[in-house]
Design a protein around this nucleic acid. Sequence first.
DNA 1: AAGCCCCTCAACCGCCACATT
DNA 2: CAATGTGGCGGTTGAGGGGCT
Length: 297
Amino acid sequence: MGRSPCCSKEGLNRGAWTALEDKILTEYIKVHGEGRWRNLPKRAGLKRCGKSCRLRWLNYLRPDIKRGNISHDEEELIIRLHNLLGNRWSLIAGRLPGRTDNEIKNYWNTNLSKKIQNYHSHQNNSVPCRKNTNLPNHHDNKKQPSTTTDATPFAPHVVRTKATRCTKVIVQPPQKFEDDPPAQLKNPTKNTMDNAGNTHDSDPIYDDDDVSQNGLDGSMDFLMNFNVGDVSLCDLLNSDFSVDLCDFNYSNDNSSSNENLSFEDWNLSNSVEPNMASDDLRSFASFVETGGDWLAE
DNA sequence: AAGCCCCTCAACCGCCACATT
DNA sequence: CAATGTGGCGGTTGAGGGGCT
């Protein structure tokens, strides 16, 4: 099946965006919203390819973009996530609110990949084989930057799964949790956490009406509603997953599918490092792996 | 001061998955 | 079911800037 190019390249501007183009694009999206990228340039009066507009918006103009230096915490998280996910920058970026996949990819290629190479060289005088890590050749012969952190990569543990997103899942707890559930599971009282780490009980999914509608009695079943960005970076890094079991991220803006998620899916989306899991989490994870139903809304 | 080299990162490209017709 | 449309992803490129000689 043939594909038409995303746009005619003739007569279009290329290269760096001007301030005026940025302004036009921003104003247009403010009024009309994102989407329909192919037609956007014509409607907005931009001599740009639709793809280029989308990229410019997503990577640079979006108001929620966090620009500036990657913090040590963020760097550590990137390393951990890359260890789990490989070069799946969009997934990694999804765990770093305000950061874009392009930014993380660039940061990895220019900083972290070298640090890790240096680290492994230092450890055993050889660079271990890393799954799915394709370092750009054009950087190989360039001088190494000074190492400013002591970030320690983990052994390769890339989980290869298809990225699956869902916002709301219903999980029946294992017997262990029915007998002695973690605090937040005992009382599924609508706790969600915002970006500042504050908890709220505003999530309508936990409303009594919802519980009854779903046939849940609150003590046996519980709902979890996750969104990327709901948990701050520090929360994620410092999570005691036995306590924060309900605060994982699993995002979705496209909730039409009804998927069964494997434990791998669940684990990679909810835990930065599997070894961090507590006994409770392990039990819970085991339950999910062996029969828990994930019912995407 | 000029030229060269290297690094960073915004932007581009090609491909893929999924939705729609 | 095939063709087409659309959005998204990861790899790569190259302009521009800074540092070094």
